[in-house]
Design a protein around this nucleic acid. Structure first.
Lengths: 338, 338
DNA sequence: CAGCACCTGTTTAACGTTATAGAGCCGCGC
DNA sequence: GCGCGGCTCTATAACGTTAAACAGGTGCTG
């Protein structure tokens, strides 16, 4: 099909290897020759055959970002950042959808399915420390999110316990006493939401408020529908909450919907806080107070770490990096500052 | 690194080519040999090196889906479908973000940037018929959406004029007379929203309503923020509209926000309709009436068409396929049926 | 002035796969 | 008995690239 190195070499009257060196800069080339080669490249419109290059180099130039849900705006926003960062570093990023499926996550860990990618950024939901440790070998792996902890891999996430603290402190500060949590999952310490639940409990204790198990609502997943259903259940309690902290913004938005349907006012009757700062939360009615992680930092760091590992660079610093977050106060807690 | 054909050949005591034939079925292999080879494959855990295969075959097995905005839920939902369809057909789909940038769209059309992909599904915004016709050659190309028409390529989209008709008819049916459109862009027939605007005008005429240019709001892009700003401008008119039809759901959601801020009731004062049926619209307050395209059909059809072209199959039927859509009535027009 | 290092460029052997040409073997028909 | 076609399987040449080994030529140094 296209022009290849040989064509350029012939045109410029040099050897194949010299052209390769001009393209890659692997070894120095004289100025005159370089110009001649460059001219030939421009004239014929050469671009390297990536398949061949990767075959030779043993790498494909592809990295994957595997998330439990492509349609969760948090991941879409993160993906947008990660894709452009990867492109800037000469890599192509492909999205994988695990659909929060344990088998899919394991298949990715194992890596046999994807001999095509050089490395993986994974946001796990259904697998834990044991499964990760059982992994024998494979390409570089970077974790994001709160699904897994204490594994011998790079891990980029916010301090989820601290984030929960911040949310609960805010709700307490505006006078709320019966604060619910939506989005716990079964499984104790191995459940993916456990850090956020822990922060919730700790902050309640610090504020001198009782921990009421009935105010912790479990969900199957972390979507709008899950939040809506859980909120309905909470409202059906004899003594419903006066505030709700959602596992993420989607869950919180589902809760907003349930509250509106049931005729409760937000924030007067029930205040609502989420996590993620997805754009959607700036347009809900009322607008949604949220914990905003630094998505740009997370996306860029994850990609850069992964590529550094792929290219065999020594990465300084600890494996686990906690990125900053901020509390954005909006209408759903009655004190907008954004 | 991994096991390769040679390892299998040695283990099974056959030639390299025979193993390849067992794997690919390119030429018949005797039953006894096949079993021996298969056993070796299972024992050593062989999986083909895709880079090498693709180098030899001249294809990479990658297709791209290029959209103007990854964070638009419509495209995220579409991507989820397309990715799984591509995977089912043995291809890997990579997402490209054009960011609604003309240069990015042209670069993709040209194809020189992406020698890595076998084909492209493109949702254009800034390029038109001329640019597409000027394309000299390159890999197969399938268009989606309303950005372009009458080009010699496969094109999957809803009938946008008819979709607008349906939306406006609905608004007229519930008694609205001053119906605004949000999301026009400069450029007459070459503007990307022109089909939806045309449907809007035709339907007004059919209902015997006057066309008021001041009720057609232009936007730079098609996000929530654009919709919000445009709605604010419309409300500032001496005689504001009693209904709004948004270019898409995001724009409509932005309009909802502006209406809530300004203290207008939806649908009592102003009814709102969008297009896309993104999940978000089922959770807004009020829930959003929308035109729902069949995303599954669009995603699957686009991928299948593209792959058929790549593999050189004759594709029957016309190039342009119009997929079905439905009107989903929800609270924002006061007559929920969903 | 010899020898050495350096700089530039070339030759060539991979990387793992697939497709083509061909080799051996068997049975069948003349 | 010999040739010929059909059936399996093998040997091998690509695909386009990179990296190592190699070859000249030049300038510097002792």
């Amino acid at each position: 099909m296209g022009v290849n190195l040989k064509d350029i070499a012939k045109r410029a009257g040099v050897s194949l290897a010299t052209v390769s060196n001009v393209v890659n800069g692997y070894r120095p080339v004289g100025e005159r020759t370089r110009q001649r080669v460059q001219q030939a490249i421009d004239e014929l419109g050469y671009s390297p055959n990536l398949g061949a290059r990767h075959l030779r180099r043993g790498r494909t130039g592809l990295i994957a970002l595997a998330v439990p849900e492509l349609t969760n705006p948090y991941f879409a926003e993160l993906a947008e950042i990660a894709i452009s960062e990867a492109a800037a570093l000469g890599y192509t990023l492909v999205m994988e959808n695990t659909a929060a499926d344990r088998g899919a996550e394991l298949a990715l860990l194992d890596g046999s399915r994807q001999r095509i990618i050089d490395g993986l950024i994974l946001s796990p939901v259904r697998i834990g420390r044991e499964e990760v440790l059982a992994r024998t070998a494979g390409s570089p792996l970077v974790f994001i999110g709160e699904g897994v902890y204490d594994v011998p891999h790079d891990h980029i996430a916010i301090d989820n316990v601290a984030a929960s603290h911040a949310a609960i402190r805010h709700l307490v500060a505006i006078g709320r006493r019966r604060i619910a949590f939506i989005g716990a999952t079964p499984g104790g310490d191995r459940q993916s939401a456990h850090l956020r639940v822990r922060g919730y409990r700790e902050a309640l204790a610090a504020a001198g408020l009782p921990y009421r198990p009935r105010l912790v609502a479990r969900t199957d997943a972390f979507g709008r529908l899950d939040g809506m259903r859980a909120m309905r259940d909470l409202l059906a309690l004899g003594d419903p909450p006066d505030a709700v902290f959602g596992y993420n913004d989607l869950v919180a938005i589902g809760a907003l919907r349930a509250l509106a349907e049931a005729g409760h006012r937000v924030p007067e009757d029930v205040a609502v806080v989420g996590i993620d700062d997805i754009e959607e939360g700036r347009f809900t009615t009322p607008t949604l107070t949220t914990i905003a992680p630094d998505k740009r930092e997370i996306g860029r760091l994850a990609v850069r770490r992964l590529i550094a590992r792929i290219e065999g660079a020594e990465v300084a610093g600890p494996l686990t990096v906690q990125t900053p977050f901020r509390l954005l106060r909006r209408q759903s807690t009655g004190t907008p500052d954004v």
